[in-house]
Simulated scan of single mutants.
Amino acid sequence: MIERILPSYVSYAELFHDPPDVTLFPEEELVISQAVDKRRREFTTARACVRQALAGLGLPPVPVVPGERGQPGWPSGVVGSITHCAGYRGAVLGRAGEVTTIGIDAEPNGPLPEGVLEVISLPEERAHLRDLSRHGGTAGWERALFCAKESVYKAWFPLTGKWLDFEEASVEFDPERGTFAARLLVPGPVVDGVEVKGFSGRVLVEDGLIITAIVVPGPEAPE
C-alpha cells in the first residue's frame, strides 16, 4: 500500500495485523517491559516491519530502540521512519547518502477529536481545508493535515535534533496530484550548504487509512 507514495530506492514493510511470533531483542524488550498491551503490540509489530525493511536493504536485524523524543535509533548508515495506528504498522528505510531524511505517518480516516484542529493548524490552513471540503473527495482533510504535520516533524527532527511545533510549519494539499507542500515558518536546517525551507510529501487515502510520506533524496539518490 505505502509503496505507491514512495520512491523506488527506499525499502519498506507494512502490516495490517499483529503477528504473534515476533521476538524482540533484549534492548527492545526493556523499553516496553512495563507497557500496556496496546503499546506492546504497536512497538513489537513495528519492529517486525523494521526487520523486513532492513532485509530489503540487505542488512541484518538489529535492535532499534527509541532515543531522544522517541526518534528510533537506526544503525549506522540507515535513515528511516516508523508509524503505527489502529490497523496499520509500517517502516520505511533508506541508505544514508541516497536519502537525507524520511517522515511517514498513518492515521485512521476519520474526524479529529473536537478542538484538536485549532491546536494543530494555522488560520490559513483551516481556510484551505474548508476549500478542499467544498470540492469533495474521500480524504478527511483535517486528519490528513494532522498526518502530514506528523510526517514533517519526523523528517525535521533527525536533521535538527529540535522540537517543531504544529504552528511552525504550514501545509497545503494538492488533491489532484496526491501531494502536499510543507513550508517551514522557522529557520530550517542546513543540508549540504543549503537551508531546508520546507518539505514535499505525498498522501494516500485507502481502506479507511490516511498515509503521508516525505522522502528527501540525498546526493547519491538514483536518477
Results as ranks from 00 to 15, higher is better:
residue 109 N to M: 10
residue 168 E to V: 02
residue 176 E to A: 05
residue 122 L to D: 10
residue 186 V to N: 14
residue 138 T to S: 08
residue 134 R to V: 10
residue 96 A to W: 14
residue 27 E to L: 05
residue 185 L to N: 11
residue 194 V to P: 00
residue 16 F to R: 15
residue 152 V to K: 09
residue 194 V to I: 02
residue 98 E to R: 13
residue 141 W to I: 05
residue 104 I to E: 12
residue 222 P to G: 06
residue 133 S to D: 09
residue 69 R to K: 07
residue 2 I to Y: 05
residue 190 V to N: 01
residue 131 D to N: 13
residue 162 K to N: 00
residue 126 R to F: 13
residue 114 E to Y: 07
residue 195 E to C: 01
residue 177 R to E: 10
residue 47 R to C: 03
residue 208 G to E: 05
residue 132 L to E: 13
residue 78 V to K: 06
residue 51 R to N: 05
residue 125 E to P: 05
residue 170 S to H: 01
residue 195 E to H: 04
residue 55 A to P: 00
residue 55 A to L: 02
residue 59 L to I: 00
residue 64 V to L: 04
residue 3 E to C: 09
residue 159 L to Y: 15
residue 129 L to Y: 06
residue 122 L to P: 09
residue 62 V to L: 12
residue 128 H to F: 00
residue 162 K to S: 14
residue 131 D to A: 15
residue 160 T to Y: 07
residue 181 A to D: 12
residue 91 A to S: 11
residue 105 D to E: 05
residue 122 L to S: 12
residue 195 E to D: 00
residue 83 T to E: 00
residue 40 R to T: 11
residue 73 G to S: 15
residue 98 E to L: 08
residue 9 Y to P: 12
residue 221 A to W: 14
residue 55 A to T: 04
residue 26 P to C: 12
residue 220 E to M: 15
residue 33 S to K: 13
residue 189 P to V: 07
residue 40 R to A: 14
residue 50 V to F: 05
residue 158 P to S: 13
residue 155 A to D: 14
residue 78 V to L: 02
residue 185 L to H: 08
residue 205 V to T: 01
residue 75 P to G: 01
residue 131 D to I: 09
residue 165 D to T: 08
residue 58 G to F: 07
residue 71 Q to E: 09
residue 151 S to F: 07
residue 183 R to K: 08
residue 206 E to H: 01
residue 176 E to D: 05
residue 135 H to Q: 13
residue 32 I to G: 10
residue 16 F to K: 12
residue 13 A to V: 01
residue 148 A to R: 14
residue 182 A to F: 03
residue 191 V to L: 05
residue 180 F to K: 11
residue 171 V to I: 00
residue 166 F to T: 01
residue 32 I to V: 15
residue 74 W to C: 12
residue 170 S to N: 03
residue 3 E to P: 03
residue 61 P to K: 08
residue 108 P to K: 09
residue 150 E to K: 09
residue 24 L to T: 05
residue 169 A to Y: 04
residue 171 V to W: 02
residue 29 E to F: 09
residue 187 P to Y: 07
residue 35 A to S: 07
residue 201 G to L: 06
residue 151 S to K: 07
residue 55 A to F: 02
residue 81 S to M: 10
residue 178 G to T: 06
residue 193 G to I: 08
residue 13 A to G: 01
residue 36 V to L: 02
residue 173 F to S: 07
residue 107 E to G: 09
